[in-house]
């Protein structure tokens, strides 16, 4: 079980991560039944505090909270007082005054979630839903859940699974969280990208690094395509989108070279025709829709573990 906040995969042990996945599995079974709604978090308030645009993460957290009977307040920076210049501190204190029990925060600055958790501005449990280029822990958890569901149903962890993560490693919080979590669970990870899209210090990560997708594509069990984040592509990381797509995109010829049971993943939203071709995204090997579905169960598990029991220090023995 986890307590306090979920800010980084680094905060989780292998056991607590596996615990979240098994809780998610039970919750998924229950919510597939006739009654999707559980009374567990009745009376708790979950605030979605989104300073960056998001579709699936926000509605996934909202669905998860509602299935556990929590009240959900959606807050997006656009159309709020943040666009009038209100600080994170004042926003947090406003949410505190409204009685938030958990704050799900997405922010363009790395470390924003930790900033919120470390201060006394707000007492709520803080869940990092993506902070800048740092981490996106619930995405990594749902990816691990999806890999386990398809390839390692009966195993204790992900030992021996070979995962290829392809694309913009430099800007990707999804890649960072996944590297930390998947290696923690026993998978081996290879990162593939053009040299310009690797971060400084990547040689110290517990991964293999390659610049050549064609050399690696046939050797993996999972290929995870990252989105080319056009909004962060102000510098010339690669000459043209066409060239990137030709060398690092998942097209039908590369899809055909995947091993028989391999699966294709993408955290979404996809740039069809850029990092992944439409036929790859819609192929039988693609589990992208499962990732979205599993996201709800995994986020229910996280909310349950953080909010289901007594808050810090309140527990009776």
């Amino acid at each position: 079980m986890i307590t306090g906040h979920l800010l980084s995969i680094d905060d989780l042990t292998r056991e607590s991560a596996m615990g979240i996945l098994s809780t998610a599995k039970e919750l998924a079974i229950i919510t597939e039944g006739p009654n999707k709604k559980l009374p567990t978090l009745r009376g708790k308030t979950v605030v979605n505090l989104f300073f960056e645009d998001s579709t699936r993460t926000r509605i996934s957290f909202e669905t998860a909270a509602k299935r556990l009977s929590a009240d959900v307040i959606n807050f997006s920076a656009k159309g709020s007082s943040v666009s009038k210049g209100e600080s994170l501190k004042d926003t947090a204190q406003t949410l505190q005054a409204m009685g938030a029990d958990a704050v799900v925060i997405r922010h363009s600055s790395s470390g924003a979630a930790k900033r919120l958790a470390d201060t006394q501005w707000i007492q709520a449990a803080v869940i990092n839903a993506g902070d800048g280029t740092h981490e996106h822990p619930t995405q990594a958890l749902l990816d691990a859940y999806t890999i386990k569901q398809h390839l390692k149903q009966d195993s204790a962890d992900l030992s021996g699974v070979k995962v290829l993560i392809v694309g913009d490693i430099l800007h990707s919080r999804v890649a960072r969280s996944n590297v930390l979590l998947l290696t923690k669970l026993g998978a081996t990870v290879t990162l593939v990208a053009p040299p310009t899209l690797f971060p400084v210090g990547v040689e110290n990560w517990p991964v293999k690094i390659s610049y050549n997708l064609d050399e690696e594509i046939s050797k993996c069990d999972v290929v995870m395509m990252l989105r080319i984040q056009l909004e962060r592509m102000s510098d010339s990381f690669f000459p043209t989108a066409q060239e990137y797509s030709k060398r690092y995109g998942l097209n039908s010829s590369r899809l055909a070279r995947l091993s028989k049971d391999a699966i294709v993943m993408h955290p979404g939203p996809m740039n069809r025709g850029l990092e992944i071709s439409a036929e790859s995204a819609d192929d039988l090997k693609s589990v992208i829709i499962d990732q979205v579905k599993n996201g709800v169960a995994v986020r229910m598990a996280v909310l349950y573990e953080l909010l289901g029991g007594a808050a810090f220090g309140e527990a009776k023995s």
């Binding site: 307590t3 098994s22 809780t23 029991g309 009776k316």
Partner: peptide
């Protein structure tokens, strides 16, 4: 809400 969370 009176006890630490339990695994499901």
């Amino acid at each position: 809400r009176l006890r630490p969370p339990k695994p499901i």
